[in-house]
Amino acid sequence: MRRTCLNSIHELARRDPRVVYVGSDPSPGTLDGMKAEIPDRFLIEGIAEAHVIGLAAGLAMEGFVPYVNTIATFLTRRCYDQIAVDLCMHNLRARLIGNGAGLVYAPLGPTHQAIEDIAIMRALPNMTVVAPADADEMRRLMEQTLDWPGPIYIRLAKGGDPIVSRETDGFEIGQAILLRDPEDVAIVACGVMVDRALAAADILAEEGIGCGVVNMHTIKPLDVASLNLFADRVRLIVTLEEHSGVGGLAAAVLEALSDRVHVAMPRVLKLALPDRFVHKYGSQDGLLARLGLTPESIAATIGRVLARGSTGAPQPAFA
């Protein structure tokens, strides 16, 4: 997904003279092709995230479309004031591409694990937040980033994630994609958790539970219309994200549902990372397993909650 994203920037830069790549201190060889072909619009600005965002704002004020790329934690936390004031207040066409969001950098520890990036980015007025499910969806997203008004935060997973999106579904920023029709349950997922949601739905299907899957790739602006379409038809809505349970996809969904003040709240099960730094290493999959977010544990939790009916309180996802 990361390579697809960077290659897309190069492709876009070939087609459109407004596109500028702005990196901080990426891996050697990053976008060498673009550097050779379009050196003027390939900027490496060093380990200085606050400056990088301000510089991108200056470019965007002059009509360029900067694509800023660095590790997600540094891109979102280190320069939050610059993102808020320089990009969001001015509502500029800048694109922030956060590498290794979620638990991708598991072995590198919590300094590199972006578990609250969605929360802090979507809290900012004017910011659009997108977490594509796979590399194919990333390519479709990138096509739309040239002229989307205002800043976009794009959450990158690692490379080699399974392809679960379908060309035939198309892609529009802000429009959810229904991957499997909801019956008893609907899982609303984003990013690489869409893959886990589909696998969990398969397991539930074997148990006779009809589980829909919605790819909510855009967390802001949330596709409230699509959410409302099935919210009252299912027994349970499940939110699933590789992100803290504070402020992410779950919060976006719950806020949208609670805005329907004239309708009773549907039951919502929040499956997310715990509200704590993860002081364990290993791999992304290993940490997801430890935190109860494998397809098997997702399916088991959903089955358990459904079995308790409407009177029981849901179990914590990761007791």
């Binding site: 900027l43 606050a50 400056h51 990088v52 965002i53 301000g54 510089l55 991108a56 704002a57 200056g58 470019l59 965007a60 004020m61 002059e62 009509g63 360029f64 900067p66 610059q82 320089d86």
Partner: peptide, 10 residues
């Protein structure tokens, strides 16, 4: 100053 650098590069 960072915004100014961006404008200068633009």
């Amino acid at each position: 100053l960072s915004i100014g650098v961006g404008m200068g590069l633009a």
